[in-house]
Simulated assay, not measured.
Amino acid sequence: MILELFKVDKYLNNTLILKNINFTLSEGEIVGLIGPNGAGKTTLLRLLATLYKPDSGTITFEGNDVFVNPENFRRIIGYMPEESGFYNKLNAFENLSFYAGFFNNITRTDILNKLNEYNLNLNKKVGAFSKGQKQLLLFIKSIIHNPDILILDEPFNALDPGVRITIRETIKNFSNNNKIIIFSSHILSDLEQLCNRYIFLKKGEIVSDIRKTQENNSQGINIEELYKKIIT
């Protein structure tokens, strides 16, 4: 699988948010987007999720422009935004069941198993969930259909350490099954533990693209030091 961005620019409210974005994502990669607030990370993830269209340039999957038939592309991606968008008056099972209606391969048992696996209350109204519980439900929603491409915007916010460990293991398993994973996070330790590639954004441009190699991985990649060197 190859997902490619070529010379992508994106404007929002007549302001250039992303400029000349070029990179290729391949199966098995866990890519961390790193940068300060306002660097364009969320905008980039929304482009990959086809919520935004580029103002110039192309986004292709297996050589095909994803915006020619975005509905088909969306069936193979899992997207976790920063905000939940859940129906607060419905419980966790009902919210996931509504979402599952857009797919043909998600059963009632699949939903129950996932909620039990992550120890979320099936019957509690989502409006009564804590921020961490809503975040966890968002993550479950993004993986419930076993997507080929996982796009996560700050997935570890508000999660307790045990849940963060579980989610990290899930992400690793996706990578081992030849999926593509790209996510943003301000929690540098999670990026350091998970990623085999790091893309640094500053003022809407890619300023560094670093892959773990046998050599630099054995020496250790210090993300905090890289951040200080590249971004600040």
Rank of each mutant, 00 (worst) to 15 (best):
E4N: 13
D9G: 09
N14G: 04
T15G: 08
L16E: 06
I17G: 08
I17S: 05
I21H: 06
F23P: 07
T24C: 10
G28R: 07
G28S: 13
V31E: 10
G32V: 03
L33S: 05
I34D: 05
G35C: 01
G35S: 09
P36R: 12
P36I: 09
A39D: 14
A39L: 00
T42C: 13
L44T: 13
R46E: 15
R46Q: 15
L47V: 14
L48H: 03
A49M: 12
A49Y: 02
L51C: 13
D55R: 14
D55I: 10
T58H: 07
G63N: 05
D65L: 03
D65C: 10
F67D: 04
V68C: 07
V68H: 02
N69P: 01
R74P: 05
M80R: 03
K89Y: 11
L90M: 08
N95F: 07
L96I: 15
S97K: 15
S97W: 14
S97V: 08
F98G: 07
F98E: 01
Y99C: 03
A100M: 11
F102K: 10
F103E: 06
F103W: 09
N105I: 01
D110G: 05
D110F: 02
I111H: 01
L112R: 06
L115M: 09
L120R: 06
N121K: 03
N123C: 03
N123P: 03
F129R: 03
F129G: 04
Q135K: 01
F139L: 05
K141N: 13
H145L: 06
N146D: 11
N146Y: 11
P147E: 11
D148M: 12
I149V: 03
L150V: 11
L150M: 09
D153K: 10
D153L: 00
E154Q: 13
E154K: 14
P155K: 13
A158G: 03
R168C: 08
R168H: 02
E169I: 00
T170S: 01
K172C: 04
N173W: 01
N177E: 15
N177K: 14
K179M: 03
I180W: 12
I182F: 12
I182M: 11
L188I: 10
D190I: 02
C195I: 01
R197N: 14
R197L: 04
K202H: 11
G204S: 13
E205W: 08
D209S: 15
E215Q: 15
N216D: 05
N216E: 11
N216H: 11
S218P: 00
Q219W: 05
I221L: 14
E224V: 04
E224L: 06
E224W: 12
E225Q: 13
Y227L: 06
K228A: 04
I231K: 02
